[in-house]
């Protein structure tokens, strides 16, 4: 058993395997009272292995189950999980969402290359968005994708950009209605009806407070520059 602080929430994890504790090492805290506690049963771990269809180690499946248990509770604290890769640049968070295989990780890699120490990966796979007054903050989590990109950091959200592969690089602003449909396929929606309703309401607020873009991009450095300029254009005008 150990305690972590994730998105400024203190959570106790009752684990069977040491893998999840190693995964969470940057998030461990001591002497803090947890808000809630999560654990995974043997049956859940079996089910997780069956659904994945892969021969994963049980310890890995346990980590996924515990993660889901945390995700289910987030709406109570004004937060939700968004499948995306998030980079902070000059202290502002830029989230990139796409179907797997489009190249989110590659794209944030281009940002690191182009912007040097102005940029830092918040999380490569499953960051948490949390409401903070009139704005949303994005937080790193221990679940940061197979490349293990990201740190235990937090920043204010600037924009969310959906990625699509293209021959040339160009970016366009998209409206709430299109953003909504694209966003839904990347958000973890709890099964519980109350938590689901809370999450939907949060998404409504998130949509109202976030700028959304669609970037058609290739794998060249220019893609990061086009994305950055596109998402900062309105500040200059």
């Amino acid at each position: 058993m150990f305690t972590i602080q994730i998105a400024d929430l203190v959570v106790e994890l009752n684990n069977r395997f040491s893998y999840v504790e190693e995964l969470c090492r940057e998030y461990k805290v001591e002497g803090k009272q947890p808000l809630f506690s999560v654990s995974a049963t043997e049956e859940e771990i079996d089910e997780e292995l069956r659904i994945s269809g892969l021969s994963l180690p049980r310890a890995y499946a346990e980590a996924t189950c515990l993660h889901r248990h945390i995700a289910r509770r987030l709406s109570e604290y004004g937060a939700f999980l968004l499948h995306s890769a998030v980079i902070s640049c000059d202290g502002k968070g830029y989230a990139f969402a796409a179907r797997s295989g489009v190249g989110k990780s590659t794209h944030i890699g281009l940002w690191l290359k182009c912007f040097g120490n102005r940029a830092r990966v918040v999380n490569g796979d499953k960051p948490i968005m949390r409401k903070d007054g009139e704005r949303f903050l994005v937080y790193g989590t221990p679940w940061n994708g197979k490349e293990r990109l990201g740190d235990n950091i937090c920043c204010e959200m600037k924009a969310l950009c959906f990625l699509e592969r293209g021959e040339t690089n160009y970016i366009e602003r998209i409206g709430a209605e299109e953003a909504l449909v694209r966003l839904f396929s990347q958000v973890y929606l709890p099964e519980d009806a109350v938590a689901s309703a809370e999450t939907l309401d949060l998404l409504g607020e998130f949509i109202g407070k976030t700028q959304f873009y669609l970037l058609h991009c290739n794998m060249e450095d220019e893609a990061a520059l086009v994305a950055y300029r596109g998402m900062n254009k309105e500040d200059e005008e």
């Binding site: 709430a176 009806a193 689901s196 939907l200 949509i207």
Partner: peptide
């Protein structure tokens, strides 16, 4: 039983909850 209708950012959205998911 189990569908949830909610207005989200000006759109009407239905999702499944509980066992219906």
């Amino acid at each position: 039983e189990g569908f949830l209708l909610r207005e989200v950012a000006g759109s009407y959205i239905v999702v499944a909850t509980g066992a219906l998911t």
